[in-house]
Amino acid sequence: MDFVIAGGRTFAPKERKSKGFELASKLFLAGVVIYLLYASYNFLTSDPRFQITDVTFSGNHALLENQLLEWLGQVHGENLFAYDLSRASERLAEHPWVLSASVQRKFPQKIQIELTERVPYARIKFEKVFLMDNFGVILSEEKPEYRNLPLIVQPGVKPENFSGERVIQSLKTMHYFNKLSFFEKNPLDIAELKGHSRIIFSTRNRDLQIQMSMETLTEGFKKFRIVLDTLEDDAVKIQMIDLSFKDQVVVRDRIPSHSTSMKTPTN
């Protein structure tokens, strides 16, 4: 039997039953899908065939694999699909020697880790000597294979209070000096920061010092180049070159009897 409602539309009981059946079918199918997804997830995350048995590293040179595994924490025996790759990458990036890290799953039981390590750029001396990279990040205590790197001495500063900006400026200035032929056979390899405004560079043979102001490193280097020809003529006799004064260079003789300061105008 059909019914007529306002507006002239006919409504049949069969139509209502059909819609009810269609809704029930959709709910049933949704339930089946949810169950299958849950069963699949439960299978993937609990089956022992997906336990991690192999962890490989690439890109590590200074760091050993056992050091990295100890830093990461438990990996072997963890489920391949449940293992948190993002957290593992973040944990590795927290290591002082690691610049970046990428962690990937390799079916069925392997984790592959690719690292980019920081490169030691200089040594810096506090109570002990540490290694640092070209961003001023402290890496670790000094290692024997890096003892040829330039040494920065910063008395009275602890590693936790260290700011690398002034140190990086000092190292760049040292690099510019060492590109000059004047330092080809006896390069600068030590920089000592004195207070907040003065720096003293020393050559490898410890027979020449260059004093500069931290506020005028670029200007001091320019002044040095201006008087370079004069300095090369008497390089053997020079003990100290002071570039910290404005518009002049002070040169001190190494021989005690001739140790009076000589001021050389630069303009």
Rank of each mutant, 00 (worst) to 15 (best):
V119W: 09
L44P: 09
N148Y: 07
V129D: 08
L72M: 14
V75E: 00
L99T: 07
F162T: 08
Q67D: 05
K128N: 14
V103G: 00
R91D: 00
Q67E: 13
I111H: 02
V75M: 04
R91P: 03
P144E: 08
P187S: 07
F183G: 01
H61C: 10
A88V: 01
G59Q: 04
F81P: 09
V119E: 13
E127T: 02
G136S: 10
E184Y: 10
F130R: 07
P108K: 10
S86T: 13
K143C: 10
P159Q: 06
P144T: 11
L64V: 13
Q74K: 10
S140R: 05
A93I: 05
E78W: 04
R118D: 00
E78R: 09
A62Y: 01
H76E: 12
H61S: 14
N79G: 10
F177A: 07
L85P: 00
E94W: 12
P120W: 03
H61N: 11
V167R: 00
F50Q: 01
N186D: 04
N79L: 10
G164S: 06
D54H: 14
Q74T: 15
P120L: 06
L92A: 03
R166H: 15
E90I: 12
L85Q: 09
R87H: 14
V55W: 09
N66H: 15
T116F: 11
K179S: 14
N60G: 11
P96S: 11
D47K: 13
M132E: 08
F135I: 12
L149M: 04
I190H: 00
G73A: 11
K158I: 11
Y121T: 04
S58Q: 13
R105M: 03
V75T: 00
F43D: 15
Q112C: 14
A122C: 10
I138M: 01
S181L: 03
S58L: 14
Q169G: 09
P108Y: 07
A93G: 09
I190Y: 06
L44S: 07
L131D: 06
F57D: 05
N161K: 02
I52C: 05
Q169V: 10
K172A: 12
L64P: 11
Y121Q: 05
Y83Q: 04
F177M: 06
N161M: 08
L188D: 03
P150M: 03
P120R: 02
Q112P: 09
N60D: 13
V103M: 05
I52Q: 01
S102R: 13
R91T: 06
L68P: 08
Q109D: 15
Q112K: 15
R49S: 15
I111A: 03
N161R: 10
I168Y: 05
R166M: 14
L188Q: 05
E70K: 11
I111E: 06
H76G: 12
V129N: 09
Y121P: 00
